[in-house]
Amino acid sequence: MRVHLRVWRQPAAHAPGGFEEYDLDDVSPDMSFLEMLDILNEQLVAEGREPVAFDHDCREGICGSCGMMINGQAHGPERGTATCQLHMRKFDDGAHIVIEPWRAAAFTVIKDLSVDRGALDRIIQAGGYITAPTGSAPEANSLPVPKEVADASMDAAACIQCGACVAACPNGAAHLFTAAKVAHLNLLPQGQPERFTRVQAMVDEMERWFGSCTMHGECEAACPKEISIDFIALMNRDYVKAQFKNRRLIAQSA
């Protein structure tokens, strides 16, 4: 099959960028989207032009490295699918495909389609963990966790930190990401001791970098792991509670 590509090219963070157009004549429908970009890059190098930079690694939808806007949709047209798992059979022969980097105030473009998502790590650093230094753990089965709870926690923990939720959000908010990370730990019994300090620290850090949530729901539609927007409600509830709980704890220890 043939495709016509319009790809965002930008040499560096603060350099101006623009679209360039390319035609590929011999694309197999069994190719993945990234294999199609590999072919493009081989072609560009052969012509003496610099290849398109894009992040990727596992190519099986788990590392969260890949991610681009494909015809205006984060990770492209297929629901619950990361860019690397998208295959060309989802496009028509002769399709026009526009490819852009994630666009969000918190994600600066590094080059072409590659962006800096470091702000997501900072939210984890602020509190996205359970304090359990190596060696201090009790016997694993000494703390039963109801299956439903473990399953719900796992649903949230499936997040691959790709940033599609942020890119899809008209406000550039990272609420779905943060909520998933909060829920993963706050749902579990092991996560209870730090539950309220955690949510407060993570939300406060999130707000330093990202926009606010006005419940558009675009994030859920774009999420390659189909993480539910309900987790945002859970996070908001815990955050509100934290305003009381954390103060009371501080007051008690003062």
């Binding site: 753990a137 009790p138 016997e139 694993a140 703390l143 109801p146 399953d151 730990l185 092991q190």
Partner: peptide, 20 residues
Amino acid sequence: EIIDQCVAQGVPFAREYGGL
């Protein structure tokens, strides 16, 4: 010890209905 450590960190391993 690894399993103990990971559970304490919040790794959501698969569970039986009894929670184990």
